[in-house]
């Protein structure tokens, strides 16, 4: 089934303006809040406040959390494994860029 072209639609860069509470981030990821808390405890997501009720996440946390959840679900790895995978993926990306710069 095909529909006509919709739009033009104007979007906003979510990462630039969004500040998310724990409730908002868990709703956007469609997971229980405890899931997000586990991601914070594992260091996948970082917060500055101690008090959970005052946790605020940048918009970029949405994509990071979703990637973590996809890895966990699709590859059946536990959270420490997910955290390690994310760190290694970022390191690979950093090395790729560095190598290209120094060509």
């Amino acid at each position: 089934m095909r529909s006509d072209i919709e739009g033009p639609l104007s979007g906003e860069i979510f990462d630039d303006y969004a500040v998310l509470s724990l409730e908002e981030l868990s709703r956007l990821c469609a997971v229980e809040k405890t899931y997000i808390v586990e991601l914070v405890e594992e260091g996948v997501l970082s917060v500055t406040e101690v008090d959970v009720a005052r946790w605020r996440f940048p918009g970029s946390a949405l994509r990071r959390a979703r990637t973590a959840l996809r890895l966990q679900r699709d590859l059946e790895i536990n959270l420490p494994g997910v955290a390690l995978a994310l760190e290694l993926l970022e390191e690979i990306e950093r090395l790729r860029r560095a190598r290209r710069e120094n060509l």
């Binding site: 529909s3 006509d4 739009g7 639609l9 906003e12 630039d16 994509r63």
Partner: peptide
Amino acid sequence: ERLLNVQVPKGILPGQTIR
């Protein structure tokens, strides 16, 4: 299948999200 005409925000970077 949905065809969508989107105004791309100037300055968007790879890895970012548009809402």
